Amino acid sequence: MPNIESHRLVVGTGTQAREIAIETRPGSAPGIFWLGGFRSDMAGSKALALDALGAETGRAVTRFDYSGHGISGGDFNEGTISRWLEESLAVFATTKGPQIIVGSSMGGWLALLLVKALAAKGEKRAHGLVLIAPAVDFTHDLMLPSFSAEEKAALENQGFFDQPSQYSDQPYRINQALIADGENHRLFGGVIEAGCPIIILQGGQDPDVPQAHAIKLVTHLLHDPVTLTLIPDGDHRLSRDEDLVRLRDAVLRLAEG
């Protein structure tokens, strides 16, 4: 069984340079490429389940932390969709052959932006997408409508506010730069094309990305084969043992399809 290789990649130049931590398991194609969620890291249960699947099946697996996340360098408070997409593209460029891209929450949005950017360069290595509670356009569609008048005022006057999180003891800082930059990457309102099969896993009890959001995404995917699996009692993380089995099965279906 090949061992995991840990390395770092510098993305950006000058004051924008940051070191991105990457863990790669060598193996066969199609490989598995992991895109985590907002404030998550590559040591989470879903990412590790995918690494275990790679070890079991001999497939290559690539995981990494966005800047300001996990063990990567950079400041989370400088994070934007543009910045994290740039890092995703840079890490993807280190992979070889076709890849099954697995994106969770914000990673689902980044997965679709990644294949869009690759297609614009004529690169079609996406073998399939697995999107877990995909938070497409979340800065506009999910965040903005939930902000209170006080939070909106704080964004305008000081450029940020701190929001309590059910996933951490520390509040999440929401920056105006993140919200403003998200406007440059909105996908809803037009046809979304991935150029490969897509499997969506969505929890019916997800308080952060409601099932209606996943259905909305499906209505925009007009040219790709799409399977939406609604898990009635599933939450946002979808990290229970039975959820991880569904994730493994989804990846294997695409790999063997």
Results as ranks from 00 to 15, higher is better:
residue 239 S to W: 07
residue 79 G to A: 05
residue 223 H to N: 14
residue 3 N to R: 11
residue 231 I to G: 04
residue 228 L to D: 07
residue 205 Q to R: 14
residue 254 L to E: 06
residue 226 V to K: 00
residue 153 A to G: 01
residue 105 S to P: 09
residue 164 P to Y: 12
residue 103 G to Q: 04
residue 185 H to I: 05
residue 50 L to F: 10
residue 156 E to G: 03
residue 27 G to H: 01
residue 16 Q to P: 00
residue 226 V to R: 04
residue 198 I to G: 02
residue 29 A to F: 13
residue 73 G to R: 01
residue 86 E to I: 03
residue 228 L to E: 05
residue 160 F to I: 05
residue 37 G to H: 05
residue 22 I to F: 00
residue 157 N to S: 13
residue 18 R to T: 14
residue 44 G to Q: 07
residue 22 I to K: 00
residue 110 L to H: 01
residue 12 G to E: 04
residue 225 P to C: 08
residue 173 R to Y: 11
residue 117 A to G: 09
residue 101 I to P: 05
residue 78 E to H: 12
residue 90 A to S: 13
residue 234 G to Q: 08
residue 173 R to Q: 12
residue 233 D to Q: 15
residue 155 L to V: 14
residue 257 G to P: 02
residue 100 I to H: 04
residue 36 G to D: 07
residue 143 M to G: 07
residue 220 H to Y: 09
residue 158 Q to M: 12
residue 78 E to A: 11
residue 76 F to Y: 14
residue 253 R to M: 12
residue 48 L to I: 15
residue 184 N to E: 14
residue 19 E to S: 15
residue 163 Q to D: 15
residue 153 A to D: 15
residue 194 A to D: 08
residue 194 A to S: 10
residue 250 A to N: 07
residue 253 R to C: 06
residue 244 L to F: 10
residue 43 A to V: 08
residue 13 T to S: 14
residue 253 R to G: 13
residue 65 D to T: 02
residue 244 L to R: 11
residue 96 K to F: 01
residue 126 A to Y: 10
residue 234 G to M: 01
residue 128 G to E: 14
residue 122 G to A: 11
residue 244 L to A: 10
residue 101 I to L: 03
residue 205 Q to G: 06
residue 85 L to I: 05
residue 99 Q to H: 10
residue 187 L to E: 01
residue 124 K to R: 14
residue 139 T to G: 09
residue 111 A to N: 13
residue 106 M to S: 05
residue 55 A to Q: 07
residue 48 L to R: 15
residue 8 R to A: 05
residue 123 E to A: 11
residue 197 P to Y: 09
residue 104 S to G: 05
residue 35 L to T: 11
residue 145 P to M: 08
residue 156 E to F: 01
residue 119 A to S: 13
residue 82 S to N: 12
residue 118 L to H: 08
residue 23 E to G: 00
residue 235 D to E: 05
residue 224 D to C: 06
residue 208 D to M: 12
residue 7 H to R: 10
residue 244 L to E: 11
residue 134 P to Q: 04
residue 66 Y to K: 03
